[in-house]
């Protein structure tokens, strides 16, 4: 049945922009988790707001200028969230920290909805509007661009981590906060830096995704959830794992509609992803057994 195969291929091709964006989101989540042991539920919102900023400024500064401003805003947002919310809740319970990031998520969504409304808009695209035909599907140049930018960003951040002094400090602080302090590294500062980078990545992902899909305060903010699943698949601490996870998640979302009537139902991909997430969590859940909590 060639048309089934063709559908499959088309659906794979259509996941390209998603994979790129999820890679960037998952990387940001991994950065933040390693630096401050927080699952940043506001990450999607930290992508959405800069995307809207770029959209709003595009007419004044042009696409590239607006994107640069938005990226800066994204980095700044990361630092602000870390200092204002996360750092202050560090001594509180994990519940409070999570609720804190959820609060940020809600605040950013509400602000964006107030400012730009809840009608989907087309985000700023850095790439010319050129489309390829792949079978029946249309693929935009920007979609491929998103993936390429994501991979470049991943490479740049991995290099930064591996080869610079700052990267060394960040890895030390992530590996062992106390030992890092004993070396003279200020882990608070490296944590802020990690949030800054994660904010930059989120902004980049948000702008890319806003260009290839649509900008919507709520939908875009929740695009972080597939990225969560990606990061979970990769084990939350591994950069390479996050990239692999993003591919798995992207393919899951893209391929489910190819599987018969059930797959074509509205929301079936999300259902499949949720199932995948629960399976991954249950498997990884062993790490949080009661015996661990009893302490050594």
């Amino acid at each position: 049945m060639p048309h089934v195969l063709r559908d499959l291929l088309i659906n794979v091709v259509l996941t390209v922009p998603l994979v790129g964006a999820y890679t960037m989101f998952a990387l940001g989540l991994v950065f933040i988790y390693r630096a401050s042991k927080v699952l940043n539920l506001a990450h999607g919102a930290m992508a959405m707001l800069p995307a809207y900023i770029a959209y709003a400024l595009a007419s004044t500064f042009g696409a590239i200028g607006a994107t640069l401003v938005a990226l800066l805003a994204g980095g700044l947002l990361g630092v602000v969230v870390e200092i204002v919310v996360v750092r202050r809740l560090r001594s509180a319970s994990a519940t409070s920290q999570t609720v804190g990031t959820v609060g940020v998520l809600g605040l950013l969504i509400a602000l964006a909805a107030r400012q730009w409304g809840t009608t989907p808009v087309q985000g700023v695209s850095l790439f010319p509007r050129h489309t390829f035909r792949v079978g029946n599907a249309l693929l935009q140049l920007g979609d491929i661009g998103t993936l390429v930018v994501a991979l470049i960003a991943a490479a740049v951040f991995i290099a930064l981590f591996r080869f610079t002094d700052l990267g060394l400090a960040m890895r030390c602080a992530a590996d062992n906060r106390r030992a890092a302090r004993l070396m003279g590294i200020d882990p608070d500062r490296t944590t802020s830096m990690a949030w800054c980078f994660a904010g930059l990545l989120a902004a980049l992902g948000g702008i890319m995704l806003g260009a290839s899909t649509n900008l919507h305060p709520y939908t875009l903010s929740l695009q972080v959830l597939p990225a969560f699943v990606a990061a979970l698949i990769g084990g939350l601490e591994s950069i390479g794992g996050a990239v692999v996870g993003a591919v798995v998640v992207g393919l899951t979302l893209g391929l489910v509609p190819s599987f018969g009537q059930i797959g074509k139902q509205v929301g079936a991909p999300q259902l499949a992803l949720a199932a995948l997430a629960f399976v991954v969590m249950s498997l990884r859940g062993n790490r949080f057994s009661v015996a661990d909590m009893a302490g050594a």
Binding site: L39, A274, A277, F278, F288
Partner: peptide, 16 residues
């Protein structure tokens, strides 16, 4: 199976 942060994400995914 999961606690704290992970449970939050699980409920969030459920809502989604």
């Amino acid at each position: 199976r999961v606690r704290g942060l992970y449970l939050a994400v699980a409920t969030l995914i459920f809502a989604w």
